[in-house]
Nucleic acid binder design. Structure first.
Lengths: 239, 239
DNA sequence: CAGTGGTCTAGACCACTGA
DNA sequence: CAGTGGTCTAGACCACTGA
């Protein structure tokens, strides 16, 4: 427990805020006052306060000073591990089966839900994820061949398309939508459920810079999956 | 567009990584080499590289140097706006109706799903969120009276419990689970759906430090709600 | 105008860890 | 052992913005 000084200053101030000794809106001492309090250079105080500002715990305004920020509660970190990894880490066997595969204009077999690969050519894939030989999720995916030419001849037999993509094309941005829906008869039979059974639907589009990489929709049986997210309040409130 | 120097160095290096000019595993120049390249002090280079390390784009190892990090893809930022705010921002009217309210040991009417307020006393609330007088979500919530004594006499008529809590007890940590389920007959009738209709189920527990604040389960009709998350790849990969 | 934070410098000492 | 990043100092100049 021999933290650097700027970390100790940071956690010290953080403690005053989280304990409620300082409440949102309260003014913090100035950097010069902290310098005197901790007997250190201003850069060291600045590093601690800047980190707290980046973390969203503190608002800093020139001339006015630094203030305890009002909590922002509009985002949380959602853990979405790779499906194959997650199944394996539970000690189950994992398998992916490709049901269907086609190549064409991406608009032709568009995945509904508002996501869109644009006008170029794309590979369209339908497949099933299995955990311990029980169907876990039905996947419908398009991969842009403009952005990922290598997808044209990839087999997707040993690893599922999502895992393959991660290793070939790191993405820089993704958008995810999560909803519930009822299974149609075809989906129900593939997932070994009854028609109308509730499904968790996850749709995601990913980009690399301005290039659209892939659009995917995954359907999970209600008992098969849940998402879990753990969030420490201000750590991602930076923007 | 007159960024400070450390920001320009940062975005410059970031550009080399995102464009693919530098790939994961590549060694970056040392701080001294960057000093020469940009003609600045080492602290300025250090600030840029430290920010990239915090963002997860770069791994830094003493003696060895700085390297382009392998992408980590296991978390994304999920926007979960306040329900009342979201309804109002769509231009709809919002209303919350309390159906039931009780006080007792929190264990007695525990919300299933693994979340738990512990042994203390708690207020239990059942209520309905309405958008434009149409039921949007059924909420079942417990609030710890040890952590939030003021909840005992709060009315929850003008604002829903979640909004009330945000303004009284800022939380520091939350865990969320998301799943699909089928509506039982009582839930279906309250949400004006048919029994067995698919629902999106969101369960959340929040803490303030070590204190458990609240456990909530919200059930949304499949058409009524979806979650959306947008994620820029490495920005939250800090941990 | 004057106080505040934002940035930058040119050094310094050190811990760590790979060669 | 030697190179690297981690930290810290004691200054400096400046832009911003509230009084």
């Amino acid at each position: 427990m021999n933290l650097p000084l700027h970390e100790r200053i940071r956690t010290d101030i953080e403690g005053r805020i989280l304990s409620g000794a300082l409440v949102p809106g309260d003014k913090l001492p100035t950097e010069h006052e902290f310098m005197a309090e901790y007997g250190c250079a201003r850069m060291t105080v600045n590093k601690a306060l800047s980190a707290l500002a980046t973390a969203g715990l503190v608002d800093r305004r020139k001339k006015a000073g630094s203030f305890v920020a009002r909590p922002r509660l509009h985002s949380m970190v959602l853990d979405i591990p790779d499906l194959m990894q997650q199944v394996l880490s539970r000690g189950q066997t994992y398998r992916f089966t490709l049901l269907e595969r086609g190549i064409g204009r991406s608009a032709a077999s568009k995945i509904d839900g508002g996501f869109d690969l644009g006008a170029g050519k794309a590979v369209t894939l339908h497949g099933l994820h299995y955990a311990d030989d029980h169907p876990l999720a039905l996947e419908h995916r398009q991969i842009s061949l403009d952005s990922v030419p290598g997808a044209e001849h990839a087999l997707f037999d040993s690893e599922p398309p999502g895992t393959w993509l991660l290793q070939h094309i790191p993405w820089t941005e993704a958008e995810t939508r999560i909803a519930a829906c009822a299974a149609d008869t075809r989906t129900a039979s593939l997932l070994q459920l009854e028609a109308g059974a509730p499904l968790l639907r996850i749709e995601r589009q990913t980009w690399r810079g301005a290039d659209r990489i892939t659009v995917v929709r995954q359907l999970f049986g209600a008992d098969a999956y849940d998402l879990s997210a753990r969030f420490k309040a201000q750590e991602t409130a930076g923007r």
